[in-house]
Nucleic acid binder design. Structure first.
Lengths: 214, 214
DNA sequence: GTCTCCGTGTTCAATGTTGAACACTGGCCC
DNA sequence: GGGCCAGTGTTCAACATTGAACACGGAGAC
């Protein structure tokens, strides 16, 4: 998980449950449906809390609870202001173009053969359907989940549907022979001001240097 | 960017342009429309390449190019197999539920007041529209971008549209008084087997301990 | 010639993330 | 009581990421 996301999540969760210790946060984060999307490791929680405390966003209390020492955290006024700022940023910035593995995969598609691309896209389609089906079957036994999180599930459904339709047309294009994939002539040339062109000459030189210097 | 994504991107880009040095990769990655979603810092490129070389996925050639020393990379058979594996994973695994900042924001919505939530969602809507408008205006002067990347842009458009519709209904729900936000009675209680309940008693004890031990 | 500036190519210390592993408690069974 | 196991609470070394900063060469201005 990215640094800012972790900060936001930890700060917010502490505010929801304070005073609270690291293990409780971990348990809670695992139990929310959050488990699926917020991949938070124990290590991140403890070091994140330590950082937030060092910055004055949280107060750390080392309590003696029975026979044990526990580190318990509460939020500070500074931390609550910081939370509002982070929250606003997270909500206001659209994350349409966030770097998803799939985008990277698409960009590198020409390195794979047509049959491999076709197969992988089909598998993605199947997995997508499986995920949305699980979502439906699994999460609807509601009462287990607060309403604002249920609303998120609707978004995921819609996104799944949209991607599904797009994927189907993409597979059709692949079948039809679109795109220059591996072992086929390229279907596209970069414009002359593209750095790809500058690269071509260096590349040739490097090939020769490697051959000579071996 | 996540570790696996960086590996995939570097490995693939090296395969596209090999033999190639770190700076060329950086230039290329910045130039692709990739600039928007693949936030790759110079540091990540060089250390990523070093790691891949150490693992035997790339070969590093220290060439003397004129008066300069350059580190130039080529892919190995092992690296090409690794690429195929990573590529398949990236494409086949749906990333519907990847942890986006917005999801975290939604989950923590009850910590914000109704007016703050309303404002932030409106801003998101405006930013979303701005992004898709830019996309349309900016990217369509095509010929600048290979077809398989243009296809990705279609996906983004669709996603943007889907999210837009969902956001509009969400704002309507917020206006209508749905959800228990800050300063309002909660609209939901966790079921009794939820760890949230276990937490309540610890919490009370912690409050007292803090008061006493200060 | 030398000054300045930009492009090229890379390093590095600070910071963050990962997840396995540790240490302790209490409950249960025999 | 002793052995075992599950739950609680945390640490830590290995690894990855960040981005500012360094080093160098060539091209143009004067």
């Amino acid at each position: 998980m990215a640094a800012t996301e972790t900060r936001l999540l930890l700060l917010g969760t502490v505010m929801l449950f304070e005073p609270v210790n690291g293990y409780q946060l971990r348990r809670e984060l695992l139990s929310w449906q959050v488990e699926d999307w917020a991949h938070v490791n124990p290590g991140s929680i403890y070091s994140g809390l330590a950082t937030l405390a060092k910055q004055g966003n949280l107060d750390r209390h080392d309590l003696v609870d029975g026979s044990r020492e526990v580190a318990v955290y509460t939020s500070t006024p500074l931390g609550r202001r910081e939370f509002e700022k982070l929250w606003r940023e997270a909500v206001e910035r659209p994350d349409l173009l966030s770097p998803l593995p799939f985008h990277t995969g698409m960009a590198l598609m020409p390195l794979m053969s047509r049959t491999a691309v076709r197969e992988a896209l089909q598998t993605r389609l199947a997995n997508l359907d499986a995920t949305t089906r699980d979502q439906l079957a699994h999460e609807v036994p509601a009462g287990a989940v607060p309403p604002h999180v249920l609303a998120l599930a609707d978004l995921w459904m819609g996104m799944g549907q949209t991607e599904r339709e797009w994927l189907v047309t993409l597979v059709a294009r692949v079948d039809r022979g679109d795109f220059g994939l591996r072992g086929e002539p390229a279907d596209w040339q970069a414009p002359a001001d593209d750095p790809g062109w500058q690269m071509a000459t260096d590349r040739q030189r490097y090939v020769e240097l490697i051959a000579r210097q071996r």
